[in-house]
Amino acid sequence: MSDPIEAAIFETLAKADPKGVGGKSVEPADVAKHIQTEQWQRVLPKVRATALHLMRQGRLTITKKGKVVDPANFRGVTRLRLPTEAETAAALAALPPKPEVDDDFV
Rank of each mutant, 00 (worst) to 15 (best):
A14W: 02
V21N: 08
A14V: 01
A7G: 07
K46P: 00
L13A: 01
Q41G: 03
D30E: 14
D30V: 01
P18R: 09
K46M: 06
D17K: 13
K15P: 01
V26Q: 03
A7R: 15
K19T: 15
L13G: 12
D30L: 05
S25P: 02
W40G: 00
S25I: 00
P45Q: 12
W40Y: 15
R42H: 05
A8E: 12
S25F: 14
S25L: 04
A32S: 14
S25R: 14
I9A: 09
A8M: 06
D17H: 13
E38G: 01
V43Y: 05
F10W: 13
P18I: 08
D30R: 10
A29F: 02
I35V: 13
A29T: 10
P18K: 05
D30G: 11
V31D: 09
K33F: 00
G22Q: 14
T37S: 13
V43M: 06
E11I: 05
V31T: 01
P28C: 06
W40V: 00
T12P: 11
F10S: 01
L44A: 01
I9Y: 08
I9S: 12
Q39Y: 12
Q39K: 05
Q36A: 06
G22C: 04
L44P: 10
A7N: 10
R42V: 09
D17N: 06
D30S: 07
G20C: 00
W40I: 03
K24D: 08
E11S: 09
T37K: 08
R42P: 00
K33I: 08
G22R: 02
E11D: 12
Q41N: 09
V21L: 12
E38Y: 09
T12W: 02
I35P: 06
K19W: 15
K24P: 04
L13C: 12
K33M: 14
Q41F: 00
G23D: 03
Q41S: 15
A16P: 05
A7C: 06
A32M: 09
A8F: 02
Q39P: 02
P18L: 06
L13V: 07
A16F: 10
A7H: 05
D17W: 15
Q41V: 15
F10P: 06
E38V: 11
E11A: 11
A14Q: 12
Q36E: 14
V21Q: 05
P28N: 03
D17S: 10
F10R: 06
A32G: 01
K24C: 10
A8V: 05
G22S: 14
E38H: 03
I9D: 11
E38I: 11
T37Y: 04
W40R: 02
K33P: 00
A29N: 09
P28G: 03
G22V: 04
P18M: 07
P28D: 08
P28I: 14
